[in-house]
Amino acid sequence: MALLTGWASFLVAVATIGCIYGLLTLGLNVHYGYTGLLNFGHVAFFAAGAYASAIVTMPPPSTVTNASYELWLNLPMPLGFPVSLAAAALVGGVLAFLIGLTSVRLGTHYLAIATFALAGVFSDVLVNEAWLTNGSFGMNSVPKPGRAGLTADEWQLAYLAFAALSLLVTYLVLERLVNAPFGRLLKGVRESEAAAKTLGKDTNAVKLKSFVIGGMIAGFAGGVYAHYLGSVVTAQFVPHVTFTVYAAMLLGGAASNTGAVVGAFLVVAFEESTRFITTLYNWIQSTLPDALSGVLPALFGPLPNNPSFIPSMRFVVIGVLFVLVIRYRPEGLFGDPAEIQALGEEED
């Protein structure tokens, strides 16, 4: 008997993805919100974590179709699950360390472009190094922990509970961290690097730490994502992910962990809701009196009949969100306007 039908199953899926994006947004918020690091390559850490999880848990390639990867550990579920997630966080952190080592000392624009570009290079590596990542076919047999003992619906709910718990724990740890002396140090570097240096702080080391912490959280999110979908494919890790996470953070309010989580859920919900555009359009059309039936097509024309229309509109919505939030409410829903003020200032 199906426990979850229609709407309920849709909502559970959206909530789980919301938790994963919540983690990603919390990670980015450490970089941008608290430390002022304009990281435009966040998706690379997410991908690194997802691939790390896939590599440590995938079965031998001989049992999988279209497999050309040469490295796998085949850790058994469910005991391998925590190891896999730890590996994901570790690899995300290591990648952040490597990218940060070359980039954190660069100024705002240069940092944005360097991270954006290095993430692009990293995605080229994922596509091309098939021995490690199975190329663009992807790793499609990542085990779902605990799936064997549960029905499909029970597993969906259980995994949602796990994702929500991970999000909660990460949130609490970060709240603790940003209110500790280390958190004040991060903000200090954000407000004035010169002042922090004058006080004898090694600002590049602080930025690097911030970068690694955020990268680990994103890597962890990648692990959670990989075991949720059971599949890791290069096409999932495009720059759009980075910017969707930005949209979530800005909407919720930079430098607010609560904002990051709320923003992530709102943005994921926004994105998912665009799939109802056609339904809505047809519904309005059918309820309008005949005399007005020409109005909508005249205003918008017939909706383009191509499969990329809905996914494209989803990102138009994200784009509009960026523009509106920055213009009319730069502190987002939960941010502190005074903190955001400091983010806009550029030191030459």
Binding site: T108, S312, F322, I326, L343, G344
Partner: peptide, 26 residues
């Protein structure tokens, strides 16, 4: 408002322009 809001807005603009085109032409 400084460079950062402009930079972030430009990302939004790029999303809007690119995806409007893609939604239209596929």
């Amino acid at each position: 408002r400084g460079a950062l809001p402009l930079l972030i807005t430009s990302i939004g603009v790029s999303f809007i322009l690119r995806n409007l085109l893609q939604g239209w032409v596929g």
